[in-house]
Computed example of a mutant assay.
Amino acid sequence: MKRLSTGALMVALATACMSAEAQESSDLRRQAFDLLNHPFPSRAMAQDAMILYGRAAMDGDVEAALYYHEIRLHLGVPAGIDETRIVARLVSAPEYLQTLARFVLSQVYARGHGAPIDTAASMRLLRQAAASGLDSARRELYQQLRAGPAADPAEAVAFLRHVASAYQSTMDNLWAMEELAAVLLDGPAPQRDLREGYRWAMRAAHGYIAQRRGWRAPALVAALFEDGLRQDGVQLLAPDPVMAAAWIEITLVHLPRNLDAPPSPLLAAKARLGAVLDTAQRARVRERVASWRYIHPRDLMHEPFDLP
Protein backbone atom coordinates (compact mmCIF):
# COMPACT_ATOMS: atom_id res chain seq x y z
CA MET A 1 0.00 0.00 0.00
CA LYS A 2 1.42 3.34 -1.07
CA ARG A 3 2.04 5.78 1.77
CA LEU A 4 1.31 9.48 1.30
CA SER A 5 3.97 12.05 2.01
CA THR A 6 3.31 14.54 4.80
CA GLY A 7 2.61 17.30 2.27
CA ALA A 8 0.24 15.15 0.23
CA LEU A 9 -1.54 14.04 3.37
CA MET A 10 -2.05 17.65 4.46
CA VAL A 11 -3.46 18.54 1.04
CA ALA A 12 -5.82 15.57 1.14
CA LEU A 13 -7.03 16.47 4.63
CA ALA A 14 -7.53 20.12 3.65
CA THR A 15 -9.49 19.07 0.55
CA ALA A 16 -11.68 16.78 2.61
CA CYS A 17 -12.34 19.55 5.14
CA MET A 18 -13.23 21.99 2.38
CA SER A 19 -15.58 19.46 0.79
CA ALA A 20 -17.29 18.84 4.13
CA GLU A 21 -17.54 22.60 4.71
CA ALA A 22 -19.03 23.13 1.26
CA GLN A 23 -21.56 20.35 1.84
CA GLU A 24 -22.58 21.79 5.19
CA SER A 25 -22.94 25.24 3.62
CA SER A 26 -25.10 23.78 0.85
CA ASP A 27 -27.33 22.03 3.41
CA LEU A 28 -27.72 25.24 5.42
CA ARG A 29 -28.64 27.24 2.34
CA ARG A 30 -31.19 24.64 1.27
CA GLN A 31 -32.82 24.77 4.70
CA ALA A 32 -32.91 28.57 4.57
CA PHE A 33 -34.40 28.51 1.08
CA ASP A 34 -37.14 26.11 2.20
CA LEU A 35 -38.04 28.39 5.10
CA LEU A 36 -38.26 31.46 2.90
CA ASN A 37 -40.41 29.61 0.35
CA HIS A 38 -42.78 28.04 2.86
CA PRO A 39 -46.46 28.20 1.80
CA PHE A 40 -47.19 30.18 4.97
CA PRO A 41 -44.00 32.14 5.72
CA SER A 42 -43.61 34.12 8.91
CA ARG A 43 -41.21 36.64 10.37
CA ALA A 44 -39.84 33.94 12.67
CA MET A 45 -39.12 31.71 9.67
CA ALA A 46 -37.32 34.56 7.93
CA GLN A 47 -35.21 35.15 11.03
CA ASP A 48 -34.37 31.43 11.22
CA ALA A 49 -33.39 31.54 7.55
CA MET A 50 -31.15 34.53 8.31
CA ILE A 51 -29.33 32.53 10.98
CA LEU A 52 -28.89 29.59 8.63
CA TYR A 53 -27.43 31.83 5.95
CA GLY A 54 -25.20 33.39 8.60
CA ARG A 55 -23.85 30.00 9.63
CA ALA A 56 -23.11 29.21 5.99
CA ALA A 57 -21.40 32.58 5.66
CA MET A 58 -19.17 31.78 8.66
CA ASP A 59 -18.06 28.73 6.67
CA GLY A 60 -16.95 30.99 3.83
CA ASP A 61 -20.07 31.04 1.64
CA VAL A 62 -19.96 34.56 0.19
CA GLU A 63 -23.39 34.40 -1.45
CA ALA A 64 -24.90 33.25 1.85
CA ALA A 65 -23.29 36.28 3.50
CA LEU A 66 -25.12 38.49 1.01
CA TYR A 67 -28.45 36.84 1.80
CA TYR A 68 -27.78 37.08 5.53
CA HIS A 69 -27.20 40.84 5.37
CA GLU A 70 -30.17 41.43 3.06
CA ILE A 71 -32.56 39.58 5.37
CA ARG A 72 -31.13 41.24 8.47
CA LEU A 73 -31.59 44.66 6.90
CA HIS A 74 -35.13 43.83 5.81
CA LEU A 75 -36.15 42.51 9.23
CA GLY A 76 -34.27 45.15 11.21
CA VAL A 77 -33.14 42.62 13.81
CA PRO A 78 -29.89 42.37 15.78
CA ALA A 79 -27.18 39.90 14.84
CA GLY A 80 -27.89 36.33 15.84
CA ILE A 81 -24.38 35.07 15.17
CA ASP A 82 -20.76 36.22 15.39
CA GLU A 83 -20.61 38.59 12.44
CA THR A 84 -16.88 39.19 12.88
CA ARG A 85 -16.34 35.62 11.65
CA ILE A 86 -18.31 36.44 8.49
CA VAL A 87 -16.15 39.53 7.95
CA ALA A 88 -12.98 37.48 8.36
CA ARG A 89 -14.13 34.96 5.74
CA LEU A 90 -15.15 37.74 3.34
CA VAL A 91 -11.75 39.42 3.65
CA SER A 92 -10.02 36.13 2.81
CA ALA A 93 -12.42 35.10 0.02
CA PRO A 94 -10.77 33.44 -3.00
CA GLU A 95 -10.01 35.54 -6.04
CA TYR A 96 -12.97 34.32 -8.10
CA LEU A 97 -15.33 35.51 -5.34
CA GLN A 98 -13.63 38.84 -4.68
CA THR A 99 -16.15 40.99 -6.55
CA LEU A 100 -19.14 39.69 -4.57
CA ALA A 101 -17.10 39.70 -1.33
CA ARG A 102 -16.21 43.37 -1.84
CA PHE A 103 -19.86 44.21 -2.38
CA VAL A 104 -20.92 42.42 0.83
CA LEU A 105 -18.06 44.03 2.75
CA SER A 106 -19.18 47.43 1.52
CA GLN A 107 -22.53 46.74 3.19
CA VAL A 108 -20.77 45.56 6.34
CA TYR A 109 -18.82 48.81 6.66
CA ALA A 110 -21.84 50.92 5.73
CA ARG A 111 -24.00 49.40 8.48
CA GLY A 112 -21.47 48.31 11.08
CA HIS A 113 -22.49 44.65 10.90
CA GLY A 114 -19.43 42.85 12.21
CA ALA A 115 -17.06 45.78 11.82
CA PRO A 116 -17.06 49.47 12.78
CA ILE A 117 -18.87 51.80 10.37
CA ASP A 118 -16.37 53.13 7.83
CA THR A 119 -18.01 55.13 5.03
CA ALA A 120 -14.77 55.65 3.13
CA ALA A 121 -13.95 51.93 3.14
CA SER A 122 -17.53 51.09 2.19
CA MET A 123 -17.50 53.41 -0.81
CA ARG A 124 -14.06 52.22 -1.93
CA LEU A 125 -15.17 48.57 -1.92
CA LEU A 126 -18.48 49.44 -3.52
CA ARG A 127 -16.75 51.28 -6.35
CA GLN A 128 -14.45 48.30 -6.91
CA ALA A 129 -17.37 45.87 -7.06
CA ALA A 130 -19.29 48.19 -9.39
CA ALA A 131 -16.27 48.61 -11.66
CA SER A 132 -16.12 44.81 -11.96
CA GLY A 133 -19.61 44.86 -13.48
CA LEU A 134 -21.68 43.53 -10.56
CA ASP A 135 -25.13 44.95 -11.24
CA SER A 136 -26.28 44.99 -7.60
CA ALA A 137 -23.12 46.95 -6.73
CA ARG A 138 -23.76 49.45 -9.52
CA ARG A 139 -27.32 49.99 -8.35
CA GLU A 140 -26.20 50.45 -4.76
CA LEU A 141 -23.39 52.82 -5.78
CA TYR A 142 -25.90 54.98 -7.64
CA GLN A 143 -28.17 55.10 -4.58
CA GLN A 144 -25.24 56.06 -2.36
CA LEU A 145 -24.12 58.78 -4.77
CA ARG A 146 -27.68 60.03 -5.02
CA ALA A 147 -28.63 60.13 -1.34
CA GLY A 148 -26.05 58.39 0.85
CA PRO A 149 -23.60 59.81 3.41
CA ALA A 150 -21.15 60.55 0.57
CA ALA A 151 -23.82 61.85 -1.82
CA ASP A 152 -22.75 63.69 -4.96
CA PRO A 153 -25.74 64.31 -7.28
CA ALA A 154 -23.58 65.39 -10.21
CA GLU A 155 -21.46 62.23 -9.96
CA ALA A 156 -24.63 60.17 -9.57
CA VAL A 157 -25.95 61.41 -12.93
CA ALA A 158 -22.55 60.95 -14.57
CA PHE A 159 -22.40 57.39 -13.23
CA LEU A 160 -25.91 56.65 -14.52
CA ARG A 161 -24.94 57.96 -17.95
CA HIS A 162 -21.82 55.76 -17.94
CA VAL A 163 -23.76 52.61 -17.01
CA ALA A 164 -26.61 53.33 -19.42
CA SER A 165 -24.24 54.02 -22.32
CA ALA A 166 -22.49 50.68 -21.85
CA TYR A 167 -25.69 48.76 -22.64
CA GLN A 168 -24.93 45.47 -24.40
CA SER A 169 -28.24 43.65 -24.94
CA THR A 170 -28.66 42.57 -21.32
CA MET A 171 -30.95 43.69 -18.51
CA ASP A 172 -27.99 45.02 -16.53
CA ASN A 173 -28.26 48.54 -17.89
CA LEU A 174 -31.92 49.12 -18.65
CA TRP A 175 -32.56 50.27 -15.09
CA ALA A 176 -29.89 52.95 -15.59
CA MET A 177 -31.53 54.11 -18.81
CA GLU A 178 -34.91 54.37 -17.11
CA GLU A 179 -33.50 56.11 -14.03
CA LEU A 180 -31.45 58.52 -16.13
CA ALA A 181 -34.55 59.42 -18.16
CA ALA A 182 -36.47 60.15 -14.96
CA VAL A 183 -33.69 62.37 -13.59
CA LEU A 184 -33.28 64.31 -16.82
CA LEU A 185 -37.03 64.77 -17.26
CA ASP A 186 -38.12 65.46 -13.68
CA GLY A 187 -34.98 65.97 -11.60
CA PRO A 188 -33.56 69.18 -10.12
CA ALA A 189 -33.19 72.04 -12.58
CA PRO A 190 -29.37 71.83 -12.87
CA GLN A 191 -29.66 68.22 -14.04
CA ARG A 192 -32.73 68.58 -16.24
CA ASP A 193 -32.40 68.10 -19.99
CA LEU A 194 -35.72 67.22 -21.61
CA ARG A 195 -34.27 66.37 -25.01
CA GLU A 196 -31.76 63.91 -23.61
CA GLY A 197 -34.34 62.61 -21.14
CA TYR A 198 -36.68 61.83 -24.02
CA ARG A 199 -33.94 59.87 -25.83
CA TRP A 200 -33.14 57.75 -22.76
CA ALA A 201 -36.82 57.14 -22.06
CA MET A 202 -37.26 55.85 -25.63
CA ARG A 203 -34.21 53.60 -25.35
CA ALA A 204 -35.37 52.15 -22.04
CA ALA A 205 -38.92 51.64 -23.35
CA HIS A 206 -37.76 49.81 -26.47
CA GLY A 207 -35.32 47.73 -24.44
CA TYR A 208 -37.86 46.63 -21.87
CA ILE A 209 -40.47 45.81 -24.51
CA ALA A 210 -37.95 43.84 -26.58
CA GLN A 211 -37.17 41.65 -23.58
CA ARG A 212 -40.68 41.71 -22.07
CA ARG A 213 -39.18 42.52 -18.69
CA GLY A 214 -40.81 45.80 -17.66
CA TRP A 215 -43.64 48.23 -18.34
CA ARG A 216 -42.82 51.46 -16.46
CA ALA A 217 -40.44 52.91 -19.07
CA PRO A 218 -42.93 52.35 -21.93
CA ALA A 219 -45.64 53.86 -19.73
CA LEU A 220 -43.38 56.87 -19.17
CA VAL A 221 -43.06 57.35 -22.95
CA ALA A 222 -46.83 57.12 -23.29
CA ALA A 223 -47.19 59.81 -20.62
CA LEU A 224 -44.72 62.05 -22.47
CA PHE A 225 -46.86 61.86 -25.62
CA GLU A 226 -50.07 62.33 -23.65
CA ASP A 227 -48.86 65.43 -21.79
CA GLY A 228 -46.24 66.80 -24.17
CA LEU A 229 -42.94 68.41 -23.18
CA ARG A 230 -42.46 72.11 -22.60
CA GLN A 231 -39.30 73.88 -21.45
CA ASP A 232 -38.69 77.61 -20.98
CA GLY A 233 -41.87 78.46 -22.83
CA VAL A 234 -40.93 76.30 -25.83
CA GLN A 235 -43.11 73.33 -26.82
CA LEU A 236 -40.58 70.56 -27.43
CA LEU A 237 -43.15 67.81 -27.85
CA ALA A 238 -46.80 68.55 -28.61
CA PRO A 239 -49.41 66.36 -26.89
CA ASP A 240 -50.23 63.44 -29.16
CA PRO A 241 -52.99 61.19 -27.79
CA VAL A 242 -52.68 58.85 -30.78
CA MET A 243 -49.02 58.10 -30.06
CA ALA A 244 -49.75 57.88 -26.34
CA ALA A 245 -52.52 55.33 -26.92
CA ALA A 246 -50.33 53.39 -29.36
CA TRP A 247 -47.58 53.09 -26.75
CA ILE A 248 -50.08 51.88 -24.17
CA GLU A 249 -51.35 49.21 -26.58
CA ILE A 250 -47.81 48.14 -27.51
CA THR A 251 -46.91 47.86 -23.83
CA LEU A 252 -50.00 45.78 -23.06
CA VAL A 253 -49.13 43.41 -25.91
CA HIS A 254 -45.55 42.99 -24.62
CA LEU A 255 -46.15 42.78 -20.87
CA PRO A 256 -43.62 40.87 -18.76
CA ARG A 257 -44.50 37.19 -18.67
CA ASN A 258 -44.45 37.09 -14.88
CA LEU A 259 -47.43 39.45 -14.55
CA ASP A 260 -50.78 37.85 -13.79
CA ALA A 261 -52.75 40.90 -14.94
CA PRO A 262 -52.08 44.24 -16.66
CA PRO A 263 -50.89 46.92 -14.20
CA SER A 264 -53.68 49.30 -13.19
CA PRO A 265 -51.80 52.46 -14.35
CA LEU A 266 -51.76 51.07 -17.91
CA LEU A 267 -55.45 50.23 -17.82
CA ALA A 268 -56.26 53.67 -16.40
CA ALA A 269 -54.26 55.36 -19.16
CA LYS A 270 -55.98 53.22 -21.81
CA ALA A 271 -59.40 54.21 -20.47
CA ARG A 272 -58.45 57.87 -20.17
CA LEU A 273 -57.15 58.07 -23.73
CA GLY A 274 -59.98 55.97 -25.10
CA ALA A 275 -62.42 58.56 -23.81
CA VAL A 276 -60.89 61.36 -25.91
CA LEU A 277 -60.04 59.55 -29.15
CA ASP A 278 -62.48 59.69 -32.07
CA THR A 279 -63.01 56.93 -34.63
CA ALA A 280 -60.35 58.23 -37.03
CA GLN A 281 -57.80 58.54 -34.24
CA ARG A 282 -58.53 54.99 -33.04
CA ALA A 283 -57.82 53.77 -36.56
CA ARG A 284 -54.50 55.62 -36.52
CA VAL A 285 -53.65 54.00 -33.17
CA ARG A 286 -54.18 50.58 -34.74
CA GLU A 287 -51.98 51.56 -37.67
CA ARG A 288 -49.21 52.74 -35.34
CA VAL A 289 -49.36 49.51 -33.34
CA ALA A 290 -49.28 47.40 -36.52
CA SER A 291 -46.28 49.32 -37.90
CA TRP A 292 -44.34 49.35 -34.62
CA ARG A 293 -40.69 48.55 -35.33
CA TYR A 294 -38.86 46.12 -33.11
CA ILE A 295 -35.36 47.36 -32.25
CA HIS A 296 -32.82 44.80 -31.12
CA PRO A 297 -31.33 45.73 -27.73
CA ARG A 298 -27.81 45.85 -29.16
CA ASP A 299 -28.92 48.61 -31.56
CA LEU A 300 -30.51 50.91 -28.98
CA MET A 301 -27.46 53.13 -28.61
CA HIS A 302 -27.29 53.61 -32.38
CA GLU A 303 -30.84 54.95 -32.67
CA PRO A 304 -31.02 58.79 -32.50
CA PHE A 305 -34.47 58.95 -30.86
CA ASP A 306 -34.69 62.69 -31.45
CA LEU A 307 -37.81 64.60 -30.51
CA PRO A 308 -40.36 64.64 -33.37
Rank of each mutant, 00 (worst) to 15 (best):
A8M: 09
D135I: 15
A101G: 07
R293P: 00
R111M: 10
G214N: 01
R199H: 06
K2D: 12
V289T: 10
R138K: 14
R55T: 12
I295F: 10
L180G: 06
P188M: 03
D299V: 01
L97S: 13
A150I: 01
D299W: 10
M123L: 13
P41N: 08
A182S: 09
A271M: 09
K2R: 14
A245R: 14
F225N: 04
Q144E: 14
L35H: 03
E178D: 15
A283Y: 00
E21Q: 14
A156T: 09
W215F: 15
P218W: 07
A16T: 11
R203S: 06
Q107L: 12
A150C: 00
V285K: 01
Q144G: 00
L66T: 05
D48T: 15
L28W: 11
M45F: 09
S264N: 09
Q231I: 02
H69A: 08
Q211N: 13
R284F: 00
L307Y: 03
Q23M: 13
V221P: 03
S26Y: 11
L105G: 03
A201G: 02
Y67V: 08
R284K: 13
F33R: 11
H113C: 07
L307S: 09
R43S: 15
V108H: 09
R298W: 04
A130C: 09
V285E: 02
L236M: 08
Y208C: 04
S42P: 10
T84C: 02
A110I: 01
L105C: 04
Y68T: 04
G76R: 05
S5Q: 04
A121L: 13
Q211Y: 00
R284N: 10
A101E: 04
Q191N: 07
V157K: 01
A166Q: 14
A64W: 02
P262C: 06
F159R: 03
A245D: 10
E140A: 12
